[in-house]
Design a protein around this nucleic acid. Structure first.
Lengths: 204, 204
DNA sequence: TATTTTAGCGTACACTTGTACGCTGAGATT
DNA sequence: AATCTCAGCGTACAAGTGTACGCTAAAATA
Protein backbone atom coordinates (compact mmCIF):
# COMPACT_ATOMS: atom_id res chain seq x y z
CA UNK A 1 0.00 0.00 0.00
CA UNK A 2 3.06 2.23 0.00
CA UNK A 3 2.61 2.70 -3.73
CA UNK A 4 6.27 2.62 -4.64
CA UNK A 5 5.20 2.38 -8.23
CA UNK A 6 2.81 5.33 -8.27
CA UNK A 7 5.31 7.36 -6.31
CA UNK A 8 8.00 6.83 -8.89
CA UNK A 9 5.60 7.72 -11.65
CA UNK A 10 4.73 10.99 -9.97
CA UNK A 11 8.41 11.68 -9.63
CA UNK A 12 9.22 11.41 -13.31
CA UNK A 13 6.04 13.31 -14.13
CA UNK A 14 7.36 16.14 -12.01
CA UNK A 15 10.73 15.75 -13.67
CA UNK A 16 9.08 16.27 -17.04
CA UNK A 17 7.30 19.39 -15.84
CA UNK A 18 10.47 20.72 -14.26
CA UNK A 19 12.48 20.01 -17.40
CA UNK A 20 9.94 21.83 -19.54
CA UNK A 21 9.89 24.88 -17.27
CA UNK A 22 13.64 24.83 -17.20
CA UNK A 23 13.84 24.96 -20.96
CA UNK A 24 11.61 27.97 -21.13
CA UNK A 25 13.70 31.11 -21.16
CA UNK A 26 14.03 34.47 -22.78
CA UNK A 27 15.15 32.68 -25.93
CA UNK A 28 12.92 29.61 -25.84
CA UNK A 29 9.14 29.59 -25.75
CA UNK A 30 6.86 26.65 -25.15
CA UNK A 31 5.94 26.15 -28.77
CA UNK A 32 9.53 25.49 -29.68
CA UNK A 33 10.18 22.99 -26.98
CA UNK A 34 10.46 19.52 -28.39
CA UNK A 35 9.15 16.40 -26.80
CA UNK A 36 12.48 14.72 -27.28
CA UNK A 37 14.50 17.44 -25.60
CA UNK A 38 12.17 17.59 -22.65
CA UNK A 39 12.31 13.83 -22.27
CA UNK A 40 16.08 13.91 -22.54
CA UNK A 41 16.41 16.47 -19.76
CA UNK A 42 13.98 14.52 -17.61
CA UNK A 43 16.15 11.46 -18.09
CA UNK A 44 13.69 9.20 -19.88
CA UNK A 45 13.36 7.84 -23.40
CA UNK A 46 11.33 9.96 -25.82
CA UNK A 47 8.65 7.33 -26.14
CA UNK A 48 8.18 7.08 -22.39
CA UNK A 49 6.84 10.60 -22.46
CA UNK A 50 3.49 9.20 -23.54
CA UNK A 51 3.11 7.27 -20.29
CA UNK A 52 2.54 10.68 -18.66
CA UNK A 53 1.00 13.03 -21.22
CA UNK A 54 -0.98 12.52 -24.39
CA UNK A 55 1.19 15.11 -26.11
CA UNK A 56 3.08 18.34 -25.48
CA UNK A 57 -0.14 20.32 -25.36
CA UNK A 58 -1.31 18.38 -22.36
CA UNK A 59 1.99 19.03 -20.63
CA UNK A 60 1.66 22.71 -21.43
CA UNK A 61 -1.82 23.00 -20.00
CA UNK A 62 -0.63 21.32 -16.84
CA UNK A 63 2.13 23.89 -16.65
CA UNK A 64 -0.34 26.74 -17.05
CA UNK A 65 -2.32 25.32 -14.14
CA UNK A 66 0.79 25.19 -12.05
CA UNK A 67 1.72 28.77 -12.88
CA UNK A 68 -1.83 29.85 -12.08
CA UNK A 69 -1.57 28.16 -8.72
CA UNK A 70 1.63 30.03 -7.96
CA UNK A 71 -0.11 33.25 -8.91
CA UNK A 72 -2.95 32.62 -6.49
CA UNK A 73 -0.61 31.75 -3.67
CA UNK A 74 1.14 34.99 -4.44
CA UNK A 75 -2.03 36.95 -4.06
CA UNK A 76 -2.73 35.44 -0.69
CA UNK A 77 0.74 36.36 0.41
CA UNK A 78 0.26 39.92 -0.77
CA UNK A 79 -3.00 40.21 1.11
CA UNK A 80 -1.32 39.00 4.26
CA UNK A 81 1.38 41.64 3.88
CA UNK A 82 -1.21 44.35 3.32
CA UNK A 83 -3.16 43.24 6.38
CA UNK A 84 0.01 43.58 8.43
CA UNK A 85 0.04 47.18 7.34
CA UNK A 86 1.73 47.69 4.00
CA UNK A 87 0.59 50.15 1.37
CA UNK A 88 -1.78 48.40 -1.01
CA UNK A 89 -0.25 49.49 -4.25
CA UNK A 90 3.42 49.23 -3.43
CA UNK A 91 2.98 45.92 -1.60
CA UNK A 92 1.13 44.39 -4.52
CA UNK A 93 3.65 45.59 -7.03
CA UNK A 94 6.53 44.42 -4.89
CA UNK A 95 5.00 40.99 -4.49
CA UNK A 96 4.41 40.68 -8.20
CA UNK A 97 7.99 41.65 -8.98
CA UNK A 98 9.15 38.96 -6.62
CA UNK A 99 7.11 36.46 -8.59
CA UNK A 100 8.85 37.54 -11.78
CA UNK A 101 12.25 37.20 -10.17
CA UNK A 102 11.59 33.89 -8.47
CA UNK A 103 9.60 32.12 -11.16
CA UNK A 104 10.46 33.94 -14.37
CA UNK A 105 9.61 30.97 -16.51
CA UNK A 106 6.20 30.47 -15.00
CA UNK A 107 5.53 34.11 -15.71
CA UNK A 108 6.89 33.81 -19.23
CA UNK A 109 4.58 30.91 -19.92
CA UNK A 110 1.50 32.88 -18.88
CA UNK A 111 2.71 35.95 -20.69
CA UNK A 112 3.35 34.29 -23.99
CA UNK A 113 0.58 31.78 -24.14
CA UNK A 114 -1.91 34.49 -23.32
CA UNK A 115 -1.55 35.53 -26.95
CA UNK A 116 -0.11 32.30 -28.28
CA UNK A 117 -1.15 30.01 -31.08
CA UNK A 118 -3.34 27.59 -29.19
CA UNK A 119 -6.85 28.63 -28.31
CA UNK A 120 -6.86 26.10 -25.48
CA UNK A 121 -3.78 27.77 -24.01
CA UNK A 122 -5.19 31.24 -24.44
CA UNK A 123 -8.36 30.20 -22.64
CA UNK A 124 -6.46 28.52 -19.85
CA UNK A 125 -4.30 31.57 -19.26
CA UNK A 126 -7.31 33.88 -19.51
CA UNK A 127 -9.00 31.83 -16.83
CA UNK A 128 -6.04 32.14 -14.47
CA UNK A 129 -5.81 35.86 -15.03
CA UNK A 130 -9.53 36.22 -14.52
CA UNK A 131 -9.16 34.71 -11.04
CA UNK A 132 -6.55 37.32 -10.38
CA UNK A 133 -8.77 40.13 -11.61
CA UNK A 134 -11.84 38.93 -9.74
CA UNK A 135 -10.04 38.76 -6.44
CA UNK A 136 -8.67 42.24 -6.93
CA UNK A 137 -12.09 43.51 -8.01
CA UNK A 138 -13.62 42.05 -4.89
CA UNK A 139 -11.02 43.75 -2.78
CA UNK A 140 -11.60 47.10 -4.48
CA UNK A 141 -15.33 46.79 -4.14
CA UNK A 142 -15.05 46.21 -0.42
CA UNK A 143 -12.46 48.89 0.09
CA UNK A 144 -13.85 51.76 -1.96
CA UNK A 145 -17.59 51.08 -2.02
CA UNK A 146 -17.80 51.47 -5.74
CA UNK A 147 -20.21 49.35 -7.76
CA UNK A 148 -19.02 45.95 -8.85
CA UNK A 149 -18.89 46.72 -12.55
CA UNK A 150 -16.55 49.64 -12.08
CA UNK A 151 -14.53 47.63 -9.62
CA UNK A 152 -14.10 44.92 -12.22
CA UNK A 153 -13.00 47.34 -14.91
CA UNK A 154 -10.53 48.96 -12.56
CA UNK A 155 -9.10 45.62 -11.56
CA UNK A 156 -8.83 44.51 -15.17
CA UNK A 157 -6.94 47.65 -16.16
CA UNK A 158 -4.62 47.31 -13.19
CA UNK A 159 -3.81 43.68 -13.85
CA UNK A 160 -3.18 44.48 -17.49
CA UNK A 161 -0.59 47.12 -16.83
CA UNK A 162 1.01 45.11 -14.05
CA UNK A 163 1.39 42.16 -16.39
CA UNK A 164 2.79 44.24 -19.20
CA UNK A 165 5.19 45.99 -16.89
CA UNK A 166 6.27 42.61 -15.62
CA UNK A 167 7.10 41.58 -19.15
CA UNK A 168 9.26 44.65 -19.57
CA UNK A 169 10.89 44.11 -16.22
CA UNK A 170 12.22 40.78 -17.46
CA UNK A 171 14.56 42.66 -19.77
CA UNK A 172 15.61 45.29 -17.24
CA UNK A 173 17.89 45.56 -14.26
CA UNK A 174 18.91 48.05 -11.65
CA UNK A 175 17.83 51.60 -12.06
CA UNK A 176 15.90 51.14 -15.28
CA UNK A 177 13.81 48.64 -13.43
CA UNK A 178 13.21 50.90 -10.47
CA UNK A 179 12.04 53.59 -12.82
CA UNK A 180 9.68 51.11 -14.40
CA UNK A 181 8.23 50.23 -11.02
CA UNK A 182 7.88 53.90 -10.21
CA UNK A 183 5.94 54.54 -13.42
CA UNK A 184 3.80 51.49 -12.81
CA UNK A 185 2.81 52.76 -9.38
CA UNK A 186 1.79 56.12 -10.78
CA UNK A 187 -0.26 54.43 -13.43
CA UNK A 188 -2.03 52.33 -10.83
CA UNK A 189 -2.81 55.49 -8.92
CA UNK A 190 -4.32 57.03 -12.05
CA UNK A 191 -6.64 54.10 -12.44
CA UNK A 192 -7.47 53.98 -8.78
CA UNK A 193 -8.30 57.65 -8.61
CA UNK A 194 -10.13 57.80 -11.92
CA UNK A 195 -12.04 54.65 -11.14
CA UNK A 196 -13.10 56.03 -7.78
CA UNK A 197 -14.32 59.22 -9.40
CA UNK A 198 -16.41 57.57 -12.10
CA UNK A 199 -17.77 54.91 -9.80
CA UNK A 200 -19.09 57.58 -7.48
CA UNK A 201 -20.48 59.69 -10.25
CA UNK A 202 -22.28 56.69 -11.62
CA UNK A 203 -23.84 55.64 -8.34
CA UNK A 204 -25.68 58.92 -7.84
CA UNK B 1 17.61 52.28 -66.97
CA UNK B 2 14.12 50.93 -66.44
CA UNK B 3 15.57 48.42 -64.00
CA UNK B 4 13.48 45.48 -65.10
CA UNK B 5 15.72 43.31 -63.05
CA UNK B 6 15.56 45.27 -59.80
CA UNK B 7 11.85 45.66 -60.23
CA UNK B 8 11.29 41.92 -60.43
CA UNK B 9 13.50 41.40 -57.41
CA UNK B 10 11.42 43.84 -55.39
CA UNK B 11 8.33 42.00 -56.51
CA UNK B 12 9.40 38.62 -55.23
CA UNK B 13 10.73 40.25 -52.08
CA UNK B 14 7.26 41.62 -51.49
CA UNK B 15 5.84 38.20 -52.33
CA UNK B 16 7.97 36.70 -49.57
CA UNK B 17 6.79 39.29 -47.06
CA UNK B 18 3.20 38.82 -48.11
CA UNK B 19 3.48 35.05 -47.90
CA UNK B 20 4.94 35.28 -44.42
CA UNK B 21 2.21 37.63 -43.19
CA UNK B 22 -0.36 35.39 -44.78
CA UNK B 23 0.91 32.39 -42.87
CA UNK B 24 0.64 34.17 -39.56
CA UNK B 25 -2.71 33.46 -37.97
CA UNK B 26 -4.36 32.65 -34.72
CA UNK B 27 -2.78 29.21 -34.94
CA UNK B 28 0.58 30.05 -36.47
CA UNK B 29 3.13 32.43 -35.02
CA UNK B 30 6.27 33.75 -36.66
CA UNK B 31 8.62 31.41 -34.86
CA UNK B 32 6.95 28.39 -36.33
CA UNK B 33 7.00 29.60 -39.88
CA UNK B 34 9.49 27.69 -41.95
CA UNK B 35 11.68 29.16 -44.61
CA UNK B 36 10.61 26.44 -47.00
CA UNK B 37 6.91 27.02 -46.57
CA UNK B 38 7.25 30.75 -46.98
CA UNK B 39 9.32 30.27 -50.12
CA UNK B 40 6.77 27.79 -51.46
CA UNK B 41 3.89 30.21 -51.01
CA UNK B 42 5.92 32.99 -52.59
CA UNK B 43 6.50 30.73 -55.57
CA UNK B 44 10.28 30.41 -55.40
CA UNK B 45 12.72 27.64 -54.55
CA UNK B 46 13.77 27.40 -50.90
CA UNK B 47 17.34 28.29 -51.69
CA UNK B 48 16.33 31.43 -53.58
CA UNK B 49 15.11 32.85 -50.29
CA UNK B 50 18.69 33.77 -49.48
CA UNK B 51 18.86 36.16 -52.44
CA UNK B 52 16.52 38.39 -50.40
CA UNK B 53 17.13 37.79 -46.71
CA UNK B 54 20.04 36.47 -44.72
CA UNK B 55 17.65 34.29 -42.72
CA UNK B 56 14.12 34.22 -41.33
CA UNK B 57 15.04 36.66 -38.60
CA UNK B 58 15.86 39.33 -41.12
CA UNK B 59 12.52 38.77 -42.83
CA UNK B 60 10.78 39.04 -39.48
CA UNK B 61 12.42 42.32 -38.56
CA UNK B 62 11.39 43.71 -41.94
CA UNK B 63 7.85 42.65 -41.17
CA UNK B 64 7.95 44.38 -37.80
CA UNK B 65 9.03 47.57 -39.56
CA UNK B 66 6.16 47.25 -41.97
CA UNK B 67 3.65 46.71 -39.18
CA UNK B 68 5.08 49.70 -37.34
CA UNK B 69 4.63 51.80 -40.44
CA UNK B 70 0.99 50.78 -40.66
CA UNK B 71 0.56 51.72 -37.03
CA UNK B 72 1.94 55.20 -37.59
CA UNK B 73 -0.25 55.77 -40.64
CA UNK B 74 -3.13 54.71 -38.46
CA UNK B 75 -2.31 57.34 -35.88
CA UNK B 76 -2.24 60.05 -38.48
CA UNK B 77 -5.61 58.94 -39.72
CA UNK B 78 -7.02 59.00 -36.20
CA UNK B 79 -5.70 62.48 -35.63
CA UNK B 80 -7.36 63.65 -38.82
CA UNK B 81 -10.67 62.20 -37.67
CA UNK B 82 -10.35 63.87 -34.29
CA UNK B 83 -9.54 67.21 -35.91
CA UNK B 84 -12.72 66.90 -37.95
CA UNK B 85 -14.55 66.72 -34.66
CA UNK B 86 -14.70 63.21 -33.25
CA UNK B 87 -14.39 62.35 -29.59
CA UNK B 88 -10.76 61.65 -28.77
CA UNK B 89 -11.19 58.41 -26.91
CA UNK B 90 -13.86 56.75 -28.99
CA UNK B 91 -12.25 57.80 -32.28
CA UNK B 92 -8.88 56.43 -31.24
CA UNK B 93 -10.35 53.17 -30.04
CA UNK B 94 -12.44 52.81 -33.17
CA UNK B 95 -9.44 53.42 -35.38
CA UNK B 96 -7.39 50.89 -33.50
CA UNK B 97 -10.11 48.27 -33.78
CA UNK B 98 -10.17 48.86 -37.51
CA UNK B 99 -6.46 48.13 -37.60
CA UNK B 100 -7.06 44.84 -35.87
CA UNK B 101 -9.80 43.92 -38.29
CA UNK B 102 -7.98 45.00 -41.42
CA UNK B 103 -4.48 43.82 -40.62
CA UNK B 104 -4.91 41.18 -37.94
CA UNK B 105 -1.66 39.50 -38.81
CA UNK B 106 0.38 42.66 -38.59
CA UNK B 107 -1.12 43.20 -35.18
CA UNK B 108 -0.47 39.61 -34.17
CA UNK B 109 3.15 39.96 -35.11
CA UNK B 110 3.63 43.01 -32.91
CA UNK B 111 1.62 41.47 -30.12
CA UNK B 112 3.52 38.21 -29.97
CA UNK B 113 7.01 39.35 -30.72
CA UNK B 114 6.72 42.01 -28.06
CA UNK B 115 7.26 39.20 -25.59
CA UNK B 116 8.79 36.69 -27.95
CA UNK B 117 12.02 34.74 -27.89
CA UNK B 118 14.25 37.10 -29.82
CA UNK B 119 15.66 40.12 -28.07
CA UNK B 120 16.10 41.81 -31.45
CA UNK B 121 12.40 41.37 -32.13
CA UNK B 122 11.40 42.57 -28.70
CA UNK B 123 13.49 45.70 -29.14
CA UNK B 124 12.12 46.35 -32.60
CA UNK B 125 8.53 46.06 -31.41
CA UNK B 126 9.27 48.14 -28.33
CA UNK B 127 10.63 50.84 -30.58
CA UNK B 128 7.49 50.90 -32.71
CA UNK B 129 5.25 51.03 -29.68
CA UNK B 130 7.35 53.78 -28.18
CA UNK B 131 6.66 55.92 -31.22
CA UNK B 132 3.01 55.32 -30.63
CA UNK B 133 3.29 56.27 -26.96
CA UNK B 134 5.38 59.37 -27.62
CA UNK B 135 2.95 60.76 -30.13
CA UNK B 136 0.07 60.19 -27.77
CA UNK B 137 2.04 61.70 -24.90
CA UNK B 138 2.76 64.76 -26.98
CA UNK B 139 -0.90 65.10 -27.78
CA UNK B 140 -1.90 64.78 -24.12
CA UNK B 141 0.70 67.27 -23.06
CA UNK B 142 -0.62 69.83 -25.50
CA UNK B 143 -4.23 69.15 -24.73
CA UNK B 144 -4.23 68.97 -20.95
CA UNK B 145 -1.24 71.12 -19.95
CA UNK B 146 0.13 68.45 -17.69
CA UNK B 147 3.87 68.01 -17.33
CA UNK B 148 5.57 65.79 -19.85
CA UNK B 149 6.47 63.03 -17.44
CA UNK B 150 2.91 62.49 -16.34
CA UNK B 151 1.79 62.75 -19.95
CA UNK B 152 4.19 59.98 -20.87
CA UNK B 153 3.04 57.70 -18.08
CA UNK B 154 -0.58 58.27 -19.01
CA UNK B 155 0.11 57.55 -22.65
CA UNK B 156 2.03 54.42 -21.77
CA UNK B 157 -0.77 53.07 -19.63
CA UNK B 158 -3.32 53.85 -22.31
CA UNK B 159 -1.40 52.17 -25.07
CA UNK B 160 -0.87 49.15 -22.87
CA UNK B 161 -4.52 48.54 -22.21
CA UNK B 162 -5.49 49.32 -25.79
CA UNK B 163 -3.00 46.74 -27.02
CA UNK B 164 -4.11 44.11 -24.56
CA UNK B 165 -7.75 44.74 -25.35
CA UNK B 166 -6.91 44.42 -29.02
CA UNK B 167 -5.44 41.02 -28.33
CA UNK B 168 -8.63 39.93 -26.63
CA UNK B 169 -10.74 41.40 -29.39
CA UNK B 170 -9.11 39.01 -31.84
CA UNK B 171 -10.95 36.15 -30.17
CA UNK B 172 -14.29 37.94 -29.86
CA UNK B 173 -17.20 38.87 -32.07
CA UNK B 174 -20.46 40.73 -31.88
CA UNK B 175 -21.74 41.74 -28.51
CA UNK B 176 -18.85 40.36 -26.47
CA UNK B 177 -16.63 42.59 -28.50
CA UNK B 178 -18.77 45.65 -28.03
CA UNK B 179 -18.71 45.08 -24.31
CA UNK B 180 -14.95 44.84 -24.46
CA UNK B 181 -14.75 48.17 -26.28
CA UNK B 182 -17.10 49.70 -23.75
CA UNK B 183 -14.90 48.53 -20.86
CA UNK B 184 -11.80 49.75 -22.66
CA UNK B 185 -13.26 53.22 -23.01
CA UNK B 186 -14.09 53.41 -19.34
CA UNK B 187 -10.59 52.32 -18.46
CA UNK B 188 -9.12 55.00 -20.69
CA UNK B 189 -11.30 57.55 -18.93
CA UNK B 190 -9.98 56.37 -15.57
CA UNK B 191 -6.44 56.94 -16.70
CA UNK B 192 -7.25 60.23 -18.30
CA UNK B 193 -9.02 61.56 -15.24
CA UNK B 194 -6.55 60.18 -12.74
CA UNK B 195 -3.64 61.37 -14.80
CA UNK B 196 -5.08 64.85 -15.02
CA UNK B 197 -5.57 64.98 -11.28
CA UNK B 198 -2.07 63.88 -10.34
CA UNK B 199 -0.41 65.97 -13.01
CA UNK B 200 -2.06 69.08 -11.62
CA UNK B 201 -1.34 68.20 -8.05
CA UNK B 202 2.27 67.68 -8.95
CA UNK B 203 2.66 70.97 -10.80
CA UNK B 204 1.65 73.08 -7.83
C1' DT C 1 28.40 42.95 -79.58
C1' DA C 2 31.01 40.68 -75.93
C1' DT C 3 31.28 40.32 -71.07
C1' DT C 4 29.77 40.33 -66.44
C1' DT C 5 26.27 39.99 -62.93
C1' DT C 6 22.77 37.72 -60.51
C1' DA C 7 17.78 35.86 -59.42
C1' DG C 8 16.25 31.59 -59.29
C1' DC C 9 16.69 26.41 -59.65
C1' DG C 10 17.78 21.45 -58.54
C1' DT C 11 20.33 18.24 -56.11
C1' DA C 12 22.18 16.67 -52.03
C1' DC C 13 23.20 16.12 -47.16
C1' DA C 14 23.05 15.92 -42.32
C1' DC C 15 19.73 16.67 -38.70
C1' DT C 16 15.73 16.76 -35.84
C1' DT C 17 11.17 15.72 -35.11
C1' DG C 18 6.88 12.81 -33.52
C1' DT C 19 5.38 8.42 -32.81
C1' DA C 20 4.12 3.22 -33.95
C1' DC C 21 5.45 -1.23 -32.22
C1' DG C 22 6.98 -4.82 -29.34
C1' DC C 23 9.85 -6.15 -25.40
C1' DT C 24 11.33 -6.37 -20.47
C1' DG C 25 11.49 -6.53 -15.60
C1' DA C 26 10.02 -4.87 -11.35
C1' DG C 27 6.08 -3.91 -8.50
C1' DA C 28 0.99 -5.03 -7.61
C1' DT C 29 -2.64 -8.34 -7.18
C1' DT C 30 -4.59 -12.64 -6.52
C1' DA D 1 3.79 -18.57 -5.56
C1' DA D 2 1.64 -17.56 -9.87
C1' DT D 3 -0.22 -14.06 -12.49
C1' DC D 4 -1.01 -9.50 -14.13
C1' DT D 5 0.13 -4.55 -14.90
C1' DC D 6 2.59 -1.07 -16.83
C1' DA D 7 6.72 2.56 -16.71
C1' DG D 8 10.39 2.77 -19.42
C1' DC D 9 13.38 1.24 -23.39
C1' DG D 10 15.24 0.51 -28.18
C1' DT D 11 14.46 0.24 -32.88
C1' DA D 12 12.61 2.04 -36.91
C1' DC D 13 10.49 5.15 -40.17
C1' DA D 14 8.51 8.86 -42.72
C1' DA D 15 8.41 13.66 -42.88
C1' DG D 16 10.20 18.04 -42.51
C1' DT D 17 14.04 21.26 -41.66
C1' DG D 18 18.11 24.67 -43.05
C1' DT D 19 21.55 25.35 -46.22
C1' DA D 20 26.01 24.31 -49.20
C1' DC D 21 27.15 24.00 -54.00
C1' DG D 22 27.14 24.60 -58.80
C1' DC D 23 24.37 25.59 -62.94
C1' DT D 24 21.55 28.51 -66.18
C1' DA D 25 19.53 32.18 -68.61
C1' DA D 26 18.36 36.73 -68.88
C1' DA D 27 19.31 41.46 -67.75
C1' DA D 28 22.96 44.94 -67.12
C1' DT D 29 27.17 46.83 -68.40
C1' DA D 30 31.09 47.83 -71.18
Amino acid sequence: MAGVRAQQKMKTRQALIAAAFNQLSAEHSFSNLSLREVAREAGIAPTSFYRHFKDMNELGLTMVDEAGLTLRQLMRQARRRIAIGGSVISTSVLTFMEFIDNQPNQFRLLLRERSGTSKAFRSAVAREIKHFILELAHYLEGETQCDSHHAYMQAEAMVTIVFTSGAEALDLEGQAREELVERLQWQLRYISFGGYHYAQKNSK
